[in-house]
Amino acid sequence: MHRITITIDDGLMAELDRMIEQRGYPNRSEAIRDLARAGMKEAARAEGQESSCVGVLSYVYDHEARDLARRLTRSHHDHVDLTVASLHVHLDPERCLEVSILKGNTHDVRHFADSITSQRAVAHGELQVIPTQLD
């Protein structure tokens, strides 16, 4: 590990300390390492450098919507190369939560997630992408 020295203004330091407290970091160094990783991940995404990833796709949908459950299942079967596992939860008589673990080329994972969450009667869709080439 390398030791570095940085200068941070008082306002930013106060914000950082609040975040450290709220998230329960053991020290400032660990918080700054996490922020650096997040920044590098975002920069790689913006520059199109991400090549492979694992993703967690979660979405809520109305299983009573015409043919939607069948179309969603068909999409997962059509992308068996990306879909590692899925969890299906019945939230109430009309709505279901689906959580899918995806793995593959980042562009393909994002495209597949967009095709799912853009379906009519799919709500609250979100994809968390974790690059596999970054430490």
Rank of each mutant, 00 (worst) to 15 (best):
L68N: 03
V80R: 11
A69R: 08
L82N: 06
H76P: 00
V80G: 07
L87Q: 11
D67P: 06
H76K: 14
R110T: 06
E98S: 06
D78P: 00
H111A: 15
E50L: 15
E94D: 10
H107A: 12
A65L: 04
V80Q: 11
A69F: 01
P93C: 09
E50Y: 06
L68K: 04
P93I: 10
K103M: 13
H88N: 09
R95A: 03
L87P: 07
A38H: 08
Q49N: 11
L87N: 04
H79I: 05
T73L: 14
G39S: 13
V56L: 12
D78F: 01
V60W: 01
D108E: 12
G104D: 02
A69C: 07
P93K: 08
R110M: 10
L91T: 03
L102H: 05
R74I: 06
N105W: 01
E64F: 06
A36E: 08
A38W: 03
S52E: 15
D62C: 02
L102S: 11
L97K: 01
R45V: 05
A36Q: 07
A43F: 12
H111F: 05
T73Y: 05
H79K: 08
E42V: 12
A65P: 01
P93F: 07
L72I: 13
S58N: 13
R71C: 03
D78E: 15
A44D: 14
E64H: 12
S75K: 13
L68H: 06
R74K: 12
S75M: 14
D108P: 00
L102M: 03
H76R: 11
G39W: 11
A38S: 11
S75A: 13
L82T: 08
H111E: 15
E94L: 06
G55P: 08
E47H: 09
H79L: 03
H107V: 12
R70L: 14
T83P: 02
D62V: 04
S86W: 01
E47W: 00
V60L: 04
H88Q: 08
A85R: 13
S52F: 11
H107P: 00
S100V: 15
A43W: 12
K103A: 15
A43E: 15
D108Y: 00
R95P: 00
H77A: 05
E94Y: 05
S75V: 03
S58E: 06
E98A: 02
D108N: 05
G55M: 05
G104P: 00
E94S: 10
T83C: 11
S86D: 14
K103Y: 03
A38C: 04
R66H: 12
R66S: 14
S51H: 14
V60Y: 01
H79Q: 07
S100D: 03
G48L: 09
D92C: 02
Y61L: 09
D92Y: 02
S100A: 15
V84C: 08
A85P: 13
D62Y: 00
S58T: 14
L57H: 07
L102N: 07
D78A: 10
E98L: 06
R66K: 14
